[in-house]
Design a protein around this nucleic acid. Sequence first.
DNA 1: ACCACTAAATGAACGGCATTCATTTATTAG
DNA 2: CTAATAAATGAATGCCGTTCATTTAGTGGT
Lengths: 242, 242
Amino acid sequence: MLETTDERAGMPAVSATQGRNAGSAGTQRRRAGRPSAAVLDKAGITTAALELINRKGYDGLTMAALAKELDVAPSALYNHVAAKRDVLLLVEDHLTSLVDVSGFGPAPWEEAVRGWAWSYRNVFAEHTPLIPVIAVLPVTDAPQTLAMYETVSKGFLDAGFPQERIVSSIVALESFIFGSAYDVTAPADIFESGSMAEATPHFTAAVRSAEGQVDGPPADAAFSLGLEALIAGLGALREQRG
Amino acid sequence: MLETTDERAGMPAVSATQGRNAGSAGTQRRRAGRPSAAVLDKAGITTAALELINRKGYDGLTMAALAKELDVAPSALYNHVAAKRDVLLLVEDHLTSLVDVSGFGPAPWEEAVRGWAWSYRNVFAEHTPLIPVIAVLPVTDAPQTLAMYETVSKGFLDAGFPQERIVSSIVALESFIFGSAYDVTAPADIFESGSMAEATPHFTAAVRSAEGQVDGPPADAAFSLGLEALIAGLGALREQRG
DNA sequence: ACCACTAAATGAACGGCATTCATTTATTAG
DNA sequence: CTAATAAATGAATGCCGTTCATTTAGTGGT
């Protein structure tokens, strides 16, 4: 269980220990045995993992590298997480807290969903390796994620959604969002058919004709198109508010 | 170099060709050096990889296991693929050829898209570890995938879609399909909020009320809902056919 | 017919990875 | 005071993808 890694509540949490690689100098060895003040906690592990991911990407996120970042032996991490997967979970839950749900309540439903969806996609476009983890993640293990669902559910309910369709609607939107997050990371020339171009005339022509007139990144055009279709289609499920 | 040191001396001149793992018995060692008839090719590697995946899942798909399946030393694989990623690519392209595009042409656009999307999702729901690979995969490297795009593009064009919106529309649908494929693999109790239930009343209520009345798997309800919304929304882009 | 080159196999390595275990030391509960 | 527990080290394990030297077989040029 993740034990809310919420930093709003707990403060920096990492601070506690001056032990953090403060001195640029030679990180002198800590002697074996339990230290007087704990060096590690979940919040600190989360912060270090994010720092590492930002600096080296997900390939650079290894248990050894994470331990080094925290100035600790790799095996020490296993007193706080059962496996690397738990580290990814901590990161995932933290990132979810960055998703903007502020539109639900003040703004009309369409606008709230639009803002939430773009924000959600943008956050995870930088963290696609987490998506396979999220997909199978029981919400119990991720308090921030659960909080997001609560806010969004309430927004749907207040907008007049029939209760029994809310979860399916959110799942449909999320599926689109996760798939679209991958799309952001695709190389620009992904659709260049190269030597096979003659064999695929219609597709090649479609790619060419789309190239000319994109406003922003091509992934944004597809995301906008699909999102607006989903908002319109799902919005039709709403009932008159009593 | 003279053939002075004949190692076969001890062996009773194993008549060249029976070397293939003919005998069900103990797969006797192939001697080093290039064999008269090539043992490996891409089709064989693809088939063996699929067999392995079906039997042991993606965790069981290791280069060593694949080599064993093909009765070959692991390093032999690298004469045919540059890296494991290439094996995944071969599998991906094969699977794409299983996606049903037969609706495009005979059936009306809505129905064709519906059939294609369900088929596409069902194929890759069993192969979600490939999704990160597909997402970044230049189509040049996957002829079957390119063929699918060609068929679908033509279907959209014939249905009256403006050429410059076809690629974005397909990408939007694909994003939804990939995200939904993950959803299929999620455990049934993924949304049980457990101990946090009181803190998330609206979400918990929504989950409860959806539980009672599902026809099939919950993932199917969300997929259907989103897909119909996308078909309706994207279909509105069509122009009158000239 | 020779010879250089390339292609396709073996088998022995390599470094990196997540994880486990025995051990040490400190704190906490009874 | 003492037993249990918590949190660290450090050594070791096993697997994984990949590389390299070597062996053998086919191929193309003169």
